[in-house]
Amino acid sequence: MTAVQTQPEATPDSAQGTRSPHRARRRLSAPYILLIPSVAVLVAAMGYPLIWQVITSLQEFGLAQQFGQPPKFVGLQNYTQLLFDSYTWAVVARSLTFCLVCAGATMAIGIALALLMKRVHKLIRNILQTALLLAWAMPLVAAMTVWIWLFDWRRSVVNWVLTEAGLNFQGYNWLAAPLTFYVVAAIIVTWMSVPFVAFSVYAGFSQVSEEVLEAAQMDGATGLQRLLHITIPMIRPVLAIVLLLQVIWDLRVFAQIKMLQDVGSVPSETNLLGTYIYQLGTGSGDFGMSSAVSIFMLVLTLAVSWLYVRRMIREDEAT
C-alpha cells in the first residue's frame, strides 16, 4: 500500500532529484553573489586607498612628485623620521591625553545621568531625556557653530556669565591659548557624547533584576554598596562596549578641532592626529609623511577597535 501511495509522487520527486545538485550549487554561491555590491564598493573606496597609502608611506612623495616626478622608494624612512620627530610625539601625546580625558569625563557624567534618570519622577526624566536627545541629534557642524558663538571672545554668553559671577572674563579669548583651546574642545566633545552613554547605560540598568536589588537591600546593603557590588558588575558588558566606543570616537575628533582652529588659533599648537594628517597632506603636500601618520592612526584605532569587535561578536552570540 505504501508503494502504491508513493508511486504518483515519484515523478516530481525524481524531477527534483535531477535538479537538486544544480540547485545546491546555486544555493552555495548565493550568499557570495549577494555580497558582491557591498564588497565591491568597500574594495574600491577603502581597500584601494588603503593599499595606495601603505605603498606611499614607504615612498618619498612630496610636492615634486605631485608635479610628475616619479616617487622614490625609501623603505621605512618616513616612519623613522616620524619616530625621531619630537613634534609627532607631541601630537600623539596630545591626542591620547585629549581622548582619555574626554572619554573619562563622558563615561563619568553619562553614568551619573543614567543613575539620575532612574532616580527622578517620570515627567522629569522625560524632560532630561528630551534635552539629551536634542544635543545628540544636532548635526556636528551646526553644533560647532553654536559653540563657537557661545565662546566668542567679543560677546559670548559664557564670558558674560563668568563675568557676572565676579570673575573677569570680559573679552577673554578662549581659543588663543592651547590649554583653554583644549578645554573648550573637551567641553564640546563631552557635551556631544554624553547622551549616547547615558541612554546606553540607562538601558543597561533595565537588565538588573529588581529582586536581587531588593534582596540586597533587605540584607542591609546601602545604596552605594548595591551600585558598586550589584548594578555595576551586572552591566559591565554595556560599560565596556560604550567605553571602547568613546575611546575610538574621541581619538578621531577631526571636525571639532578643525572648526575651532578655523576661528583663529595657531594650528601647529593645537593639532591632534586628524588635523595633523590633514595639514601634512593638503597643506604641505607631503603624501609620504601624511600616509605614514595615517597608517599609525589606523593601527592605533584598529587595536582599540579589535577589543570592541571581539566583545560585539561575543555579545551577539550570547543573544
Partner: peptide, 24 residues
C-alpha cells in the same frame, strides 16, 4: 571573517584614509 571585517571597517577613522581617498 566577513562579519569581523565589517565591524572593523566600520570603526576606521575617516582621517586615517582621507588623504589617500583624495588622491584616488
Amino acid at each position: 571573517g566577513f562579519i569581523l571585517a565589517l565591524l572593523l571597517v566600520q570603526m576606521l577613522p575617516a582621517e586615517g584614509l582621507f588623504i589617500a581617498q583624495y588622491r584616488m
